[in-house]
Nucleic acid binder design. Structure first.
Length: 822
RNA sequence: GGGGGCGUAGCCCAAUUGGCAGAGGCAGGGCGCUUAAACCGCCUCCAGUGAGGGUUCGAGUCCCUUCGCCCCUACCA
């Protein structure tokens, strides 16, 4: 489309100037009130896509707006630059991930700059910076020293495509890898873990105070998955000195326990298994061990699958409520990693147990009276207890208490809280990540790399084939080292850290990237933390945000970040996704609509306005055939401002009249609307308010009567000021042309509405009879209820409508409405 | 299976504590400008809020049922 000004030229001019003049550089001792505006630092995947554009448009708007509100705004940028795609691409291209990554970083940085987003570039950090790595490793070693990092063999999720271990969170619900889509296998490996479970309770409790979207808070709560119950012993029938320990949240249903189940990984399984049953038990265990998580859970809906998935061990345990012997089964619907890895089974009150019992012909005894007409199998709701001895007649809550007391007395029962949350597996068998800074010495075992030898950097000449081993393990020069303690031969750890480790503390380095040798100076960082506004995609609702929360709490506790708040992100905003043909627009799906071409046509400003205007920022955006036209419409809005600022076709008159006052009123009401819109993330309505104002000014200025000059100037200047955080280039350009001797529009204070002008002279009050509008009155906005009522009843149209009937009731809601009921 | 969200005009979306369903944009139509077209300017058509019920003087908004779409989660005992 033809533009009335050279968009490319204007935008390039201002981008260069913002970079040069350091306006958005901010010092840690800035006396102004502080505001930390942070957009999640991106993985460098190349030129920006629409999701980035949307993200950084919002982030830049916040930063510029808060700056105009007089704050010292910390708005940094960096890169989450370690990660699999770079490594895979490098393998494919036969190059080095660093070269690949840095090329992508340059591309992304360039398209972010072309968006007109401004940052304090002095503070740029990226994960693969050796300095940043040094601090990441220092933190790892501090965790190790504090007992928060430990090594353990564990069944892990092995992705055959990525040739690496995945965190539970990186395995999709269907058992495939979130990145490559391969079916994930189970494998036992020695791995590093972070003890995030130590913080489960605090991570859960602190959610309450966060100003985060409710759904993100809910997701985190569910992920942590706290459940209260009782852990107790089921004595073995053949040897009462031994017991199977189980966990339950429903001790009240104890009289209904008709069997017990252990997980295939349970340590007592071999002991419990009798010779007669050994073959079938071993078959089940083998199947469970080799099966992927998906295969293991896939058959949960079919009875056929259930039968295959359980086997009798041949042993019995004693139900501590009934003292009856009940059989012990092994089944893969019980998880070895949760609770005690064994359960008491209550088929009448638990659906899974019910399904299993039905297939295996096990006894089902109801202990809770279901509501009348209940048709299902297992009933897990509240109800009066039955078949339950001393619990009969009690409801669930009361029975739980009594049952727990009984178990405490007779079965070593203790009340116990369990969490779904597992410790964080941080080892990755990859090259392009931060090396874990430990060595393995034959004499001294696990030895931390001494501080003065950090960072441990990977050598460049590493083969990254698909052998399945950590690439670093194959590099003799790196792998073979000497023990820092005694000089004995030692092996370096060959695994690298999960990239979520980097993103768990980068925001702290942003706040103080200047202090050498340590990750940051807590005194400096304390000036900015917590982040006032964090902006990112909903896809990080669980992992990144949970890990970052854990890191900060741990860093405070182990003395690296003393005095800092324990929560990193005070306010969080999660933007909607960009969707094309019903699925998320992403590089991996190959359905991108590149933003670059819009820079040439509608410009960065036009694209920004589109993203702000298309709908609520939290909503998804559907990219359709019509989107092109919507974007052009946004550019047209900017063009109209440009033309008006040239005073094209504008007529002037000399004395301020009523129409001028009306324009001023509209202007000041717009100040309110836009400010409110920006404060409550209603950017679409803020843009709409500006469009409305433009229509008002433009219509008046081009009317035959014309407009008074100072009125036009005030309105136009206000319009430009309010628009500045949204369309920074055009507004800066026009402001400079109009007021060449004044500071930039971006250095102006945010406009304040004049209350006198905002107040309406009169408002229209609707008068209804039985809910139907019968009259409209112009009234004073402060009219009282009585006056509103009598004015309504005195109106000729109303008197006519009532036709002499006496109202039974009059509802007056001044100054909007009076409803007369007859 | 569980949890959350959303259905308003042909389309994207607005609508304080429940108070006249329409702020803005796109598309469509008309007129003006123009030799003509584009651009531009002005005007304009269009829904009773997915469906059904309830509460209320009054429901897009609150409650129940139901349909459709989206997101998260999924043997956690």
């Amino acid at each position: 489309m033809a533009r009335p000004f050279n968009v490319t030229e204007v935008e390039a001019k201002w981008q260069a100037r913002w970079l040069d003049d350091g306006t958005y550089e901010v010092d840690n001792d800035d006396p102004r009130e502080r505001f930390y505006a942070l957009t999640m630092y991106p993985y460098p995947s190349g030129t920006a896509h629409q999701g980035h554009i949307r993200n950084y448009t919002f982030g830049d708007l916040v930063a510029r707006y808060q700056t105009m509100r007089g704050k010292a705004v910390l708005s940094p940028f960096g890169f989450d630059s370690f990660g699999l795609p770079a490594e895979n691409a490098a393998i494919k291209a036969g190059s080095h991930p660093r070269l690949f990554t840095e090329a992508r970083m340059a591309e992304l940085k360039s398209s972010i700059r072309r968006l007109g987003a401004v940052y304090d570039w002095r503070r740029e950090v990226y994960s693969h910076d050796p300095q940043f790595m040094k601090y990441s490793q220092q933190i790892f070693l501090a965790f190790l020293k504090a007992g928060l990092a430990y090594r353990a063999e564990a069944p892990v999720n092995w992705c055959p495509g990525c040739m690496t271990v995945l965190a539970n969170e990186q395995v999709l619900a269907d058992g495939t890898c979130e990145r490559s889509g391969d079916l994930v296998e189970r494998k036992n490996l020695e791995q590093w873990f972070f003890k995030i479970t130590d913080y489960a309770e605090e991570l859960l409790n602190d959610i309450d105070d966060l100003e985060w979207p409710e759904r993100v808070k809910t997701m985190q709560r569910n992920w942590i998955g706290r459940s209260e119950g009782v852990e107790f012993d089921l004595a073995l029938a053949y040897d009462a000195t031994k017991a199977l320990r189980v966990f339950t949240t429903r001790p009240d249903t104890g009289f209904g326990v008709t069997y017990a189940v252990v997980a295939p990984e349970h340590p007592m399984l071999a002991e419990l298994t009798t010779d007669d049953e050994r073959a079938s038990v071993e078959a089940l265990v083998e199947r469970a061990a080799s099966a992927s998580e998906m295969e293991r859970t896939a058959s949960s809906d079919s009875g056929d699958g259930l039968e295959k998935r359980g086997a009798f061990t041949g042993s019995f345990v004693v139900n501590p409520f009934t003292n009856e012997q009940v059989p012990v089964y092994v089944a893969d619907y019980v998880l070895g990693t949760y609770g005690t890895g064994a359960i008491m089974a209550v088929p009448a009150e638990d659906e899974r147990d019910h399904a299993f019992a039905t297939v295996h012909g096990l006894k089902i005894v109801r202990t809770t009276q279901p509501p009348e007409g209940f048709a299902g199998g297992a009933y897990s709701g509240d109800g009066v207890h039955m078949n339950s001895g001393f619990l009969d007649g009690l409801n669930v809550a009361d029975a739980k208490v009594k049952a727990a007391e009984h178990l405490a007395k007779h079965a070593n029962g203790i009340t116990k809280v369990n969490y779904r949350l597992r410790d964080w597996l941080v080892s990755r068998q990859r090259f392009w990540g931060c090396p874990i800074p430990v060595v393995y010495c034959e004499v001294h075992g696990i030895v931390p790399v001494p501080a003065d030898q950090l960072p441990v950097l990977a050598p460049d000449d590493v083969t990254m084939d698909k052998s399945g081993l950590s690439p670093l393990a194959t590099h003799e020069g790196f792998r073979n080292t000497v023990c820092p303690i005694g000089g004995e031969p030692a092996l370096r750890e060959a695994d690298t850290m999960d990239t979520f480790c980097d993103s768990s503390w980068y925001f702290l380095r942003f706040a103080d990237p200047f202090t050498p040798d340590v990750a940051f100076d807590p005194v400096q960082v304390a000036k900015w933390m917590p982040v006032d506004q964090y902006i990112g995609g909903i896809e990080h609702a669980i992992l990144h945000l949970l890990y970052a929360r854990f890191y900060l709490k741990a860093l405070v506790d182990i003395g690296i970040a003393p005095g800092l708040p324990r929560e990193p992100f005070r306010r969080l905003f999660t933007q909607g996704m960009i969707r094309l043909d019903g699925s998320k627009m992403s590089k991996s799906k190959g359905n991108l609509v590149a933003p670059e071409r819009y820079y040439e046509t509608v410009g960065a400003d036009g694209l920004r306005i589109f993203h702000l205007f298309v709908g609520p920022p939290a909503d998804n955006v559907d990219w359709t055939d019509q989107t092109e036209e919507l974007i052009e419409g946004c550019a047209r809005f900017l063009d109209r401002i440009y033309r008006l600022a040239q005073y094209d076709e504008v007529k002037f008159h000399d004395v301020v009249d009523d129409t001028d006052v009306a324009v001023r009123r509209a202007t000041h009401r717009t100040i309110l609307k836009v400010t409110e819109g920006l404060d409550r993330w209603s950017y679409n309505t803020a843009v709409a308010a500006l469009m409305e104002l433009l229509n008002t000014i433009s219509k008046t200025a081009r009317s035959d009567e014309g407009i008074e000059r100072a009125t036009l100037d005030e309105s136009l200047d206000t319009l430009l000021t309010l628009l500045a955080p949204m369309a920074p280039h055009l507004t800066a350009e026009l402001w400079e042309a109009r007021r060449p001797n004044d500071p930039s529009v971006h250095l102006q204070s945010w406009p304040v509405a004049d209350p006198e002008l905002v107040r309406e002279a009169t408002v229209t009050m609707v008068v209804q009879v039985n809910g139907k509008v019968r009259a409209r009155l112009e009234v004073d906005p402060t009219i009282s209820e009585d006056d509103a009522q009598s004015a309504a009843l005195a109106d000729a149209a109303i008197i006519g409508a009532l036709a002499g009937v006496t109202p039974t009731r009059v509802v007056a809601r001044p100054p909007r409405l009076v409803n007369i009921i007859v």
